[in-house]
Structures are given as structure tokens and as C-alpha cells.
Design a binder for these strands. Structure first.
Length: 222
DNA sequence: ATATCGATTATCT
DNA sequence: GATAATCGATATG
């Protein structure tokens, strides 16, 4: 296949479950550059993953899994590659994917995406009229925003298999190289707030809001 | 540009 | 009864 054909018709395939059967840091870092896809009827939404956070399981005070296995978070204690959707601040849904293995929690929170396809539909879902380039930045920049753009709710999506296109919400790989990875502390948490577990594509304009004032840890480690 | 605040509810203590 | 892995609006430099 020529490069030109690869660019216009990239082959897209779902990530295997073994991809998620690893530690959350590793999964988080490698999810950067992959695609989140929502299929509803013949409409497809797709967006590149540009910012995520790792949550380490029961030993991580900031993780929902720290409370042990409850009704709310039981997906985290199930097999890897499934959607954990939670409702927060009485207003917003957020999407995670389970990692590790059955019985061992660990997850990655999706924090920001770069919209690729179905942009008009995302704008409708967000209640935004697209007038300038700046409006694109408000579509999927932030965990609550991307969930709204993709129509993700707990009732609809919690527990769905993100490795299966048949589920209508899945994660794909298209062979595009990832840019430089940057690592910073996680955003918006009270506990364990200093651990460097936020992974982002350096310089990507769709990364969520205020860069933390703390000096960012650079390079791709962990 | 950054800072602060209210909204609104499932979940946990 | 308090809290929370957020967002959008408003206030201020």
C-alpha cells in the first residue's frame, strides 16, 4: 500500500484485550495517539486520544478503586478493556477503560481528544454552533466535554467492551505515529495530587485547559 | 491572562 | 451530611 493510500484510507482495527491487561501507566502512555470511536447507525464519530490519566487501583488514594469493589466501580475490578463510566459533580460523565486483570483494579481516564470525524454531530451533542476554529477546542477538550460530545452516559456505556466494534464504542489503532509525550501531575484531584500520572501529546492544542503551574516532567518514562 | 464560584446528584462515611 | 477524576460564567488584573 502506498503512503498516499495509507493516508487517505488508513486501516483501522480495534485494540486487543491484551493491550489493556497491563499496568495503568503503560496503558495510558500507549493510548496516546489511538482513536476513540462511536458508531451509531451509519454515523461514525472518531477522535484521537491526546490526554489521559492513569489510576493505579486500590493502592491509589485518588482512584475510585480505593473504596474497594462497590456497585459503582465494579467494572474496575473486572477484566481489562471495559468502559467504566461515572457521574460527577451532579453534572458530568467521565470515561475510563479498565486495565490489569480480573480482581486487580487499575484504569485510564480519557481527558481530551482531537476530533477527526463526525464533528458536526459532536457540536450538536455539546450544544455548540461551529463558527470559528476556537469552537473546535471546546468539543472534546476535558473529560466531561468529550463524554458529552460522544453521548457517553453511565446507563448506556458503563461496562461496554471497548475492544469490540460491535459494542458501538471502541478503541482503534491506525498506525499514526505519536508525537512527543509529556507527563505531569493529575488534574482536579485532592488526594495523591503530586504523582506524575497525566500523559499528553506535547504541544497538542486539544489538551485540556490550564497547564498545571507545577513544572512539567518531560520525556516518556514509566 | 488567572481566580473564584455555583450547579446538581450518586455515592460513601 | 459531605464530598467529588468538572464545566461555564463572572470577576478582576
Amino acid at each position: 500500500m502506498t503512503l498516499d493510500r495509507a493516508l487517505s484510507h488508513p486501516s483501522i482495527h480495534p485494540l486487543d484485550r491484551s493491550f489493556f491487561a497491563r499496568g495503568a501507566r503503560r496503558v495510558a502512555r500507549e493510548l496516546l495517539g489511538k482513536l476513540l470511536i462511536r458508531d451509531v447507525g451509519k454515523l461514525r464519530l472518531s477522535a484521537r486520544i491526546v490526554e489521559v490519566e492513569a489510576y493505579l487501583g486500590e493502592s491509589d488514594p485518588a482512584a475510585h478503586a480505593a473504596a474497594g469493589n462497590t456497585t459503582r466501580n465494579s467494572v474496575l475490578f473486572g477484566p481489562p478493556g471495559y468502559a467504566y463510566v461515572y457521574f460527577i459533580y451532579g453534572n458530568h460523565y467521565c470515561l475510563n477503560v479498565s486495565c490489569e486483570r480480573e480482581g486487580k483494579a487499575g484504569s485510564v481516564l480519557f481527558r481530551a481528544l482531537e476530533p477527526l470525524r463526525g464533528i458536526e454531530a459532536m457540536a450538536r451533542a455539546r450544544g455548540i454552533t461551529l463558527e470559528g476554529p476556537r469552537d473546535l477546542l471546546r468539543l472534546t477538550t476535558g473529560p466531561g466535554r468529550l463524554a458529552e460530545a460522544f453521548g457517553i452516559t453511565r446507563a448506556r456505556d458503563n461496562g461496554c467492551d471497548l475492544t469490540s466494534p460491535a459494542s458501538g464504542l471502541w478503541i482503534a489503532e491506525d498506525g499514526v505515529f505519536t508525537a512527543r509525550i509529556q507527563i505531569t501531575p493529575r488534574i482536579g484531584i485532592r488526594k495523591a495530587a503530586d504523582l506524575p500520572l497525566r500523559y499528553l501529546l506535547a504541544g497538542n492544542p486539544f489538551v485540556s485547559r490550564p497547564r498545571p503551574s507545577k513544572p512539567a516532567l518531560r520525556g516518556a518514562r514509566a
